[in-house]
């Protein structure tokens, strides 16, 4: 039978193309245009060439924010991924409690970012917050507005509280797709719990875990609202992550040129990392399909 080739289906992609053009491509082009010019407002621009890029690349402030950002993303990935897997492994497989756990796990995901920030900001206060008051009462010196470590711990714990469920739910979906026969075979071979995890569960979860890691990396790399609400980037610059720094520069100081150059480099880093993740993911899929 001859297959008919019909390329007209491509027209169905048009609405998405238009949407992406207006929401991403045109703004990005504008940012590129800003990055080579200087402005004092009134839509009047002066050509500045690649000097903003030069300035930003030599700017310690940007490198420090990037360093903090990478440390933050690494910490939350190192906590959320193993913790999410652990939670998924200990969730019941079927019945009422399985549904109950799923609903409870999804609750933090439904809360908007700024509300999460506000919850933790109040939670951690020494005068009225449950966490802050309790820690203070048992003699632990905790003040996230003044202490570097307290601020970092608060921001990290807040992110873990907000997003571990996502990793857990994805890992749980991966676990649910493993047929019982695998476990029965493992039982016959008298495999240890660790061997079951290492050779059955982990390989079967690899695909969804990659998606979880990608999503968590991207989100944490672009995090803005929660630390902004809780610490405002402080104390000093302790929790000033890339996007907080970027907003300060673009909107606070109205340095559109440097901020645009900064955004483009930020975008390129995200693009590179997403591409690496995407490539690894699709290659894993292909390997699975073959094997």
């Amino acid at each position: 039978m001859n297959k008919t080739v019909n390329q007209k289906a491509w027209f169905l992609v048009l609405p998405v193309l238009v949407l992406v053009a207006f929401s991403a491509v045109i703004p990005l082009m504008t940012v590129v245009n800003y990055s080579v010019q200087d402005t004092f407002g009134n839509n009047v621009f002066f050509w500045n060439g690649i000097r903003w890029f030069e300035e930003m690349l030599a700017d310690e402030r940007m490198w420090n924010a990037l360093g903090r950002q990478l440390v933050f993303s690494s910490i939350i990935l190192a906590i959320e991924v193993p913790l999410g897997i652990l939670v998924a492994l200990s969730m019941p497989k079927r019945g009422f409690w399985a549904s109950f756990c799923l609903v409870v796990m999804s609750l933090p995901l439904l809360i908007p970012w700024n509300v999460v920030g506000t919850i933790w900001q109040i939670f951690g206060r020494i005068d009225i917050g449950l966490l802050g008051y309790t820690l203070d009462a048992i003699g632990i010196d905790y003040n996230y507005t003044q202490d570097f470590y307290a601020a970092w711990i608060t921001v990290v714990v807040m992110d873990v509280w907000h997003w571990t469920s996502l990793v857990a739910l994805l890992a749980y979906a991966g676990l649910q797709s493993i047929p019982d026969a695998y476990y029965q075979a493992a039982k016959i071979d008298q495999a240890s719990r660790w061997a079951v995890f290492r050779y059955i569960e982990l390989p079967k979860m690899a695909g969804v875990l990659m998606i979880a890691i990608l999503l968590r990396f991207m989100d944490s790399f672009m995090i803005y609202t929660e630390p902004f609400v809780v610490t405002g980037g402080g104390p000093g610059n302790a929790t000033t992550f890339l996007s907080i720094d970027l907003v300060k520069m673009a909107l606070g100081q109205f340095d559109l040129g440097p901020a645009a150059a900064f955004s483009i480099m930020y975008f390129l880093v995200i693009l590179l990392i997403s591409w690496v993740f995407y490539t690894v993911m699709t290659n894993l899929d292909k390997r699975d399909a073959k094997g």
Partner: peptide, 13 residues
Amino acid sequence: SWMAWTWPTAAFF
């Protein structure tokens, strides 16, 4: 005009 085009960036795109 709000996109602040320049010749080099237009050529780039």
